[in-house]
Design a binder for these strands. Structure first.
Lengths: 184, 184
DNA sequence: CGCAATGTGTTCAGTTCTCAACAGTTGGAA
DNA sequence: TTCCAACTGTTGAGAACTGAACACATTGCG
């Protein structure tokens, strides 16, 4: 892809997130973004249909980035190293995910992340045939909610414990299920 | 001017200065700059004929920025506030001017600055008709060298005293001449 | 109410930048 | 020496971006 496209989109998203932190989604205008980013207003429309689309794409982008850091670092199975690298990535990009998870992101980020994680959990569980009893969804949503809850708590409380600790604790909480549910 | 031009030139210059600090002028290649700046190599040639030209333009730019901060803040006459704002500006952009003044800039920056200041001094002196006796150039070069010497000393020794102090001391040193030479 | 100010979304001609290719130069290792 | 790799400087076609204009909607102020 043309470097200009990458750069422009990155610039627009960064500017958008800055403004999101400053004044909230409602009060942001396309003109604001263009002015702050020092680009032509029309250029914004070349990439996004409106600011709602921009929010969507933004969320999509940062959900993917988060997941990539999970997939890159380890097998998708519920290994400690996979969780650890997720939390490391969150720590590194704290301000962004704090923003997207809490007030502004308006919950869209959370629900998008929830869906994807739920699907992954479903797949992981589904691998082991004798897990059929669990496939009614209860287990999936229990585990997904638990995981996201921990994640939100950690971010919204400004990382009250370090990456090592949160990983260990999470693994401890998941242990009964990793043993039973995951095929090795 | 098209915003793209401003942005691109700024980017190229910044990247160039970074590389200058890292590896020195000789070892910099146009490809280096393009790669680091994440732009097409051809784009560099759209703005500068080669890296020597880039160095020239860079020096020219930062000499002008320095002088603007002098002209903006006060009358050109040798007032304390003019000197003060020059040193304030230098302090704010310390790393750049340290780089340009010392090793790499290869003396070009110094001599460019010298010429301009010498010219200004000549003009200031020339205003008072009875200064003709001084117009042989000795005074001009004495004062210019003195001023630039102080400036270089201050930068190269990483600002061993604060802006206030250096300004006061410089004014003290210049006092005999401001009294005699400058018309009011 | 009128109306001025601000934002939206679109269009178009013109400019800048990208990408890929080119031939030519240089420096260093085999 | 020869060869290879890296850098230079240039070109052309096409894509991205700019600036300026446009009609239209919304807001809020006198």
């Amino acid at each position: 892809m043309d470097r200009r496209i990458q750069k422009t989109r990155q610039l627009i998203m960064n500017t958008f997130l800055d403004l999101l932190a400053e004044k909230g989604f409602e009060r942001i205008t396309i003109s604001d973004i263009a002015e702050r980013a020092n680009i032509n207003r029309g250029t914004v429309y070349l990439h996004y249909v409106d600011k709602f689309d921009l929010l969507d794409k933004c969320i999509e982008t940062y959900v993917e980035l988060l997941l990539n850091h999970c997939a890159n670092s380890a097998d998708t199975n519920l290994s400690a190293s996979a969780f650890q690298s997720v939390f490391e990535y969150l720590e590194k990009n704290f301000t962004i995910y704090k923003l997207l998870l809490s007030n502004e992101g308006v919950g869209f980020f959370r629900s998008r992340l929830y869906d994807i994680i739920a699907q992954t959990v479903t797949e992981v569980i589904g691998i082991k045939p004798e897990n059929n009893a669990f496939s009614n969804g209860v287990t999936t949503h229990f585990l997904t909610s638990g995981f996201i809850g921990v994640l939100e708590w950690w971010i919204n409380n400004s990382m009250p414990c370090n990456v090592q600790e949160i990983t260990v604790q999470l693994m401890f909480l998941l242990e009964p299920y990793t043993k039973r549910l995951v095929s090795l």
